[in-house]
Amino acid sequence: MPEASEYGGSGLLTNVRTGRHTSFDRIVFDVTGRPSWRLVHYVKNIVTLGRGDFVPLRGDAKLEIVLSVPSHDAAGRSTYNPADHDELTLVLAYRTFRQVANAGSFEGQTTIGVGVRAHLPFRVFTLTNRVVVDVAHNW
């Protein structure tokens, strides 16, 4: 079931990291300022913001995470510039995640695509300077 946030952010994306836990895989978005997300849901395909290009992802399910924070400042300078936009973090040994890719930042929001093993339950929450998404290992 999709989850949506009720408020907009006023921060900037600075980092994306992942972790493995006993019953879930976690993705964390580090934000300067107020962290916020707009929508997290499973979709048929992930497309880039602004251009609509297809973003290929490994996995049987695709989780679209739309953050309400850009990855660039007001002057257009990047605040998050990964070495590889198709592999933001290495998740090859994870139980649930298969791939994490950047789908772009446009008009105050950033979209991240996560290739997932299957349509598994997830939860979304914010912490100080972070948006966190946990995806369960099982149903």
Rank of each mutant, 00 (worst) to 15 (best):
M1P: 10
P2L: 07
E3R: 14
A4L: 12
A4I: 13
E6W: 12
E6H: 15
E6K: 10
G9R: 01
G9C: 01
S10A: 12
G11D: 03
L13K: 02
V16Q: 04
V16A: 08
V16W: 10
G19E: 12
R20Y: 06
S23N: 13
S23I: 09
D25G: 02
I27F: 01
I27K: 00
D30E: 12
V31E: 01
G33M: 08
G33D: 02
P35S: 03
P35G: 03
R38E: 10
R38L: 12
L39S: 15
L39P: 06
H41Q: 13
H41Y: 11
H41W: 07
Y42K: 06
N45V: 14
N45W: 13
I46C: 06
V47A: 09
T48K: 08
T48W: 03
G50M: 04
R51G: 03
D53F: 15
V55R: 00
V55C: 04
V55E: 00
P56W: 00
L57Y: 01
R58F: 06
R58W: 05
G59Q: 05
A61G: 02
L63M: 05
V66W: 01
V66S: 11
S68K: 00
P70H: 13
A75R: 15
G76R: 12
G76K: 09
R77G: 06
S78W: 14
T79M: 07
N81C: 04
N81Y: 07
N81S: 13
N81F: 13
A83W: 02
D84K: 08
H85Q: 15
D86Y: 15
A93C: 10
A93Q: 14
Y94H: 08
Y94R: 06
R95F: 05
T96I: 00
T96H: 05
F97G: 02
R98H: 00
Q99S: 06
G104M: 00
F106N: 10
E107V: 14
E107Y: 11
E107G: 09
E107H: 11
Q109S: 14
T110L: 02
T111M: 14
T111L: 09
T111N: 04
I112C: 07
G113R: 06
G113N: 10
V114S: 07
G115T: 05
G115H: 03
G115P: 05
R117I: 08
A118S: 13
F122A: 07
R123W: 08
V124H: 10
V124T: 11
V124C: 13
T126E: 08
L127R: 12
N129T: 11
R130L: 01
R130D: 00
R130Y: 02
V132A: 04
V132R: 02
V133A: 03
D134C: 03
V135L: 09
A136Q: 15
H137P: 01
N138M: 13
